[in-house]
Computed example of a mutant assay.
Amino acid sequence: MAATLKNFETRFNKKYQYPYVFLNNEEFDTAFMNEMTRIVERGSGAQVQFGKVPEEHWSYPEWIDQEKAAKARKAMGDKGIVYGGSESYRFMCRYFSGFFYRHPLLQQFDYYWRVEPGVEFSCNVNYDVFRFMASNRKKYGFVITMQEIPETIPTLWKTITEEFLPKGPRFMEGTSRPAIRYFGPPSPNGYNGCHFWSNFEIASFDFFRSPEYNQYFELLDRKGGFFYERWGDAPVHSIAAGLFLSTEEIHYFHDIGYRHYPFSHCPADFVFRRENNCACDPFEPTEISHGSCQTMWNIHYAL
């Protein structure tokens, strides 16, 4: 996290001094808090806050059969699926799907930028992304889109199309929902697997705090797919953006260089990379900007 924070301060926040909120399911130790605070003080001098995730947000809800969940983890782990055998990863996915935006420390904010440990920003970001989002009425921003591992979400799309969408018109009347077409037709087997990689998100809290999003999450949570399968917060967020936002409200930050192993995005324009001191190569093997999901977005939805 120290390396990521130093990089983020240098590339963006020393110019804008936006506050940081660190959240963890355990109490942060003093050494961690001191180091994070020291890095920010030497950089932007921004405010730094530390909070704890409530236990009920990082545990099993009462309706989950934990024996069934354990068997599902073992089966997925035996198949070698990434994080398939991890219990904590499932807690994390559920938390980011339905709880992070409810944390008391975040109620003061209208937008957030999710910054994960181990990520690297490879170009200077020389404009205020939050003012950009607000002035252009954007509600969800991404930098990488790719296909989800099908074995982790075998019933997610069917659950949404067969159990949630029939209830949708109560709050979606008059909304064309054009962005949902990016993910496939609203039929049980229509999902193409594309999702916005959620370890990078710049988004509006109003989107997640909305009644429709929370009705959507509550239905998914009750189905148990976060534990009986391995529903990720990335497809959950992405499909919700497709359902509740227009194409114009979703933004691809093509000008932000980003790396999170094993994938990366590097702006293609040579002059841009030179002017913004980019340390990346758009032709390196981990570059994913030419994948099928990104290409489809560029052709049909990029503005």
Results as ranks from 00 to 15, higher is better:
residue 8 F to Q: 01
residue 9 E to Y: 02
residue 10 T to L: 04
residue 14 K to V: 11
residue 14 K to P: 00
residue 15 K to I: 10
residue 23 L to N: 04
residue 27 E to D: 07
residue 31 A to T: 08
residue 31 A to M: 01
residue 34 N to Q: 09
residue 34 N to L: 04
residue 43 G to L: 11
residue 44 S to G: 11
residue 50 F to C: 05
residue 50 F to M: 04
residue 56 E to M: 10
residue 58 W to D: 04
residue 60 Y to D: 09
residue 61 P to L: 14
residue 62 E to R: 13
residue 63 W to H: 15
residue 69 A to E: 09
residue 71 K to T: 08
residue 83 Y to Q: 10
residue 86 S to T: 08
residue 89 Y to H: 11
residue 91 F to S: 05
residue 91 F to T: 06
residue 93 C to S: 04
residue 94 R to N: 14
residue 95 Y to C: 04
residue 99 F to E: 06
residue 100 F to I: 14
residue 109 F to K: 10
residue 109 F to R: 03
residue 111 Y to N: 03
residue 111 Y to V: 12
residue 116 E to H: 10
residue 118 G to L: 05
residue 121 F to V: 06
residue 124 N to I: 08
residue 124 N to F: 11
residue 125 V to T: 10
residue 127 Y to H: 14
residue 129 V to Q: 01
residue 129 V to D: 00
residue 134 A to S: 14
residue 141 G to C: 14
residue 153 I to H: 15
residue 155 T to L: 10
residue 157 W to T: 02
residue 158 K to M: 12
residue 171 F to Q: 10
residue 174 G to L: 12
residue 181 R to A: 13
residue 182 Y to S: 04
residue 184 G to Y: 05
residue 190 G to A: 08
residue 191 Y to H: 05
residue 193 G to H: 05
residue 197 W to H: 02
residue 198 S to R: 02
residue 203 A to C: 07
residue 203 A to H: 04
residue 209 R to I: 12
residue 214 N to W: 00
residue 221 D to P: 02
residue 222 R to L: 13
residue 223 K to P: 05
residue 223 K to T: 13
residue 223 K to Q: 13
residue 227 F to S: 05
residue 229 E to Q: 15
residue 233 D to F: 04
residue 234 A to E: 15
residue 246 S to Q: 09
residue 257 G to M: 05
residue 259 R to D: 03
residue 264 S to T: 10
residue 280 C to W: 03
residue 280 C to N: 01
residue 286 T to P: 01
residue 288 I to R: 06
residue 288 I to C: 13
residue 293 C to S: 11
residue 297 W to T: 10
